[in-house]
Write a protein that binds this DNA or RNA. Structure first.
Length: 313
RNA sequence: GGCGUGGUGGCAGAAUGGUCAUGCAGCGGCCUGCAAAGCCGUCUAUGCCGGUUCGAUUCCGACCCACGCCU
């Protein structure tokens, strides 16, 4: 028999974690987090990380695996996640991939091309050139090395221009060629995929705002303060660009009042949710569930448990 | 009650006798090793009534509202 892989996506604040933990208590499931912020140690309150108690009850993988000074990546995620999926299957259990980092889900579903890792030095060089010449100039260079990539990347999209050039330099080949063949690493796996999609955006927004205040009440600012106090972290690190952390960091740097940081943090959270929803809409293989509908969680839970039973689990 | 100042989009804030900046928020989208990131696109406005004018958000008058000062 082939063990399945379950996927649960959804925007921030939709209730994914609670659903996942609830399911794991009713079925032989282990949770694999699909979340670019939960990987960082010390980012707890602001990421709504599952509590130690919850993690003791249900195994969570890919949480707290990285120091905030490091940069995690989609590539590392893919390798890590596939490793956990295999290991969980090896235990005769079912992996439930839960999270909101849609690029990571896509990597899992569609695969990533064989590309070189990010190179810190190369990126530093490119940043230096960009401050002197401007990104449009580097975009023009990309147009020579990889016209196809230049066509779909905006002259202002620093991040992607940088990545494309980095790959061209490192491999001597256009990124577009390298990206041509990718295979789904989960091809042939029995997949069940859901997305929590709140029916009313308004309600999600209210919830996100309340949640932000509640995080502050539970010591979010102190959490950021202790990261700030380490002295070896800076605002450019992926961990500190996370929603909420970035704004509170900026307040600690004296750039924003706490009120302003809060306002912006809440707005950034809404924007994150919006981008996640855009991605969910485009991923047609996901089955939508409205978490605000009465009884939605219970009936989902029941259905999943039943379908696992059919497989003898 | 009198005088003064000011009313521009959800908010902030420019400008103009003829096409009403811009920023933020919102909304839609893109996404291959930073993705809670980055980028692209986009709707809504000149308080009200009248006058001058070919044409008024702009000039004039009345009114309403806000703020300040005076009584």
């Amino acid at each position: 028999m082939r063990l399945p892989v379950l996927l649960l996506a959804g925007p921030t604040g939709a209730g994914k974690s609670a659903w996942a933990i609830g399911l794991a208590e009713a079925a032989p499931i282990e949770i694999v987090s699909v979340d670019s912020a939960l990987v960082y140690r010390g980012l707890d309150i602001g990421t709504a990380k599952p509590s130690p108690a919850e993690r003791a009850r249900v195994p969570h993988h890919l949480v707290d695996i990285c120091d905030p000074a490091e940069s995690y990546s989609a590539g590392r995620f893919l390798a890590d996640a596939l490793g956990h999926i295999r290991a969980i299957h090896g235990r005769g259990r079912v992996p439930l991939l839960v999270g909101g980092t849609m690029l990571y889900f896509r990597a899992l579903l569609r695969g990533l091309a064989q590309l070189p890792q990010a190179s810190a030095e190369r990126r530093r060089e490119l940043d230096t050139r960009a401050t002197r010449e401007g990104w449009p100039a580097l975009h023009a260079e990309l147009a020579r090395l990889d016209p196809e990539a230049a066509l779909r990347i905006s002259p202002n999209d620093a991040q992607r221009i940088q990545r494309a050039l980095e790959v061209c330099y490192a491999t001597g080949r256009p990124l577009s060629d390298l990206q041509r063949q990718t295979v789904s690493p989960l091809a042939g796996v029995r997949l069940q995929q859901w997305a929590l999609v709140p029916g009313e955006r308004e309600r999600l927004h209210e919830r996100l705002e309340r949640r932000f205040y509640s995080m502050l009440a539970r010591g979010f600012l102190d959490e950021v303060r202790s990261l700030h106090a380490r002295g070896d972290l800076d605002a450019g690190l992926p961990a500190l660009r996370a929603v909420g952390y970035r704004q509170l960091w900026s307040h600690l740097e004296g750039e924003l009042s706490l009120e302003e940081a809060t306002r912006r943090g809440i707005a950034a959270t809404r924007q994150l949710a919006k981008r996640q929803l855009t991605w969910i809409r485009s991923e047609r293989s996901l089955q939508w569930v409205d978490p605000d509908r009465a009884g939605a969680e219970a009936s989902w839970n029941r259905d999943v448990v039943a379908s696992l039973r059919e497989l003898g689990l």
